[in-house]
Write a protein that binds this DNA or RNA. Structure first.
Length: 308
DNA sequence: TAATCGTGGTG
DNA sequence: TCACCAAGATT
């Protein structure tokens, strides 16, 4: 048993953490943001679209893209009927454009295999492209009110502090964290779904990464990290991602040109986005390999036209 | 398991 | 200014 597993097991044995449910859910009732994907009219498709867009991307940047996306493609079949390149174009500058491709792929699978309705089963959700453990649980919970452990970066941080007494969770999600999250899920489905949304919201608004606002936290009085005197993070530093000069930056520039052009773009135009030819070619090849760019005869390129 | 994959706001 | 950070998934 690892140290972190012991943390979780000991924490669960030493205390009854069901007393966290009421204050956190009550706080959520009073302070939850009014986000469009939380409204009833969003439906399961709206929830799924928001979850794709929110992967590693702040709410503020998602909002406008989400609105135009659902207006243009109100159902999965509407998106599936268009070329995947249109999804990449509409994705705009949200980042990680492979998510757009995968959302298009998920919509196609939903249209073909699920009669156009976002599936309810966790396993069926998990089988969709771009849907991992978190997103499957989130859609099942938020869209269908099911009981799942929903473990995102916000929840991981809340649990790391409130239960394990650490400033930050480990770099990679551990089995101990999953076990703890499962143990903390309220017994009934409706409360479990609210708990999931509430713990995420608490992490997003109060128990934030940089400067937590513990004075506004509904469980500050029983937070293990607070009780321990808010100790600084120990262990390996959280890996910081460089960007300038990487292939990702080059890919971003290339794709930005292609998004802006309705017509095929000549190689010579793409060549202007980056000075170093080897890296430039590698980035373009990568985009093609990923299905984000379609090469044409005569050295021209465009966003993909596939619908499959 | 660890690296890869965008983008832009911010303390 | 410049690391840090933001509702992860995939290989």
């Amino acid at each position: 048993m690892t140290a972190t597993t012991e943390d979780a097991a000991n924490a669960a044995q030493d205390h009854d953490y069901t007393d966290l449910h009421a204050p956190v859910v009550d706080w959520f009732d009073a302070h939850a943001r009014d986000l469009p994907w939380r409204r009833p009219e969003a439906g399961a498709w709206g929830v799924m679209v928001s979850e794709f867009m929110l992967q590693q991307t702040p709410v503020a940047r998602v909002l406008p893209v989400y609105e135009q996306w659902l207006k243009r493609w109100p159902r999965p079949a509407d998106l599936a009927a268009e070329p995947s390149g249109e999804a990449v174009r509409a994705w705009g500058r949200l980042g990680y454009p492979r998510r757009a491709l995968r959302l298009h792929g998920a919509a196609s699978a939903i249209a073909e295999r699920h009669g156009g309705d976002v599936p309810k089963e966790h396993a069926q959700l998990l089988a969709l492209p771009g849907v991992g453990e978190y997103t499957a649980a989130a859609v099942a919970s938020f869209a269908y009110g099911q009981r799942h452990a929903v473990l995102d970066t916000n929840v991981r941080r809340v649990f790391a502090r409130a239960v394990n007494g650490r400033q930050y969770p480990p770099n990679a999600t551990t089995a101990a964290e999953r076990k703890l999250a499962r143990m903390l899920v309220p017994a009934d489905d409706a409360t479990a779904a609210r708990w999931a949304a509430a713990t995420m919201e608490l992490g997003a608004l109060v128990c934030t990464a940089r400067t937590p606002v513990c004075g506004r936290c509904p469980i500050a009085d029983r937070c293990a990290w607070q009780r321990a005197g808010a100790p600084e993070h120990e262990g390996p530093p959280r890996r910081t991602q460089t960007y300038a000069g990487t292939d990702r930056q080059v890919r971003g520039r290339l794709l930005a040109v292609l998004r802006e052009s309705d017509a095929p773009v000549p190689q010579a135009v793409l060549d202007r986005v980056w000075h170093e030819p080897v890296q430039r070619a590698r980035a373009l090849d990568g985009l093609v390999a990923d299905g984000l760019v379609e090469p044409l005869a005569g050295g021209e390129y465009r966003l993909p036209q596939s619908r499959g």
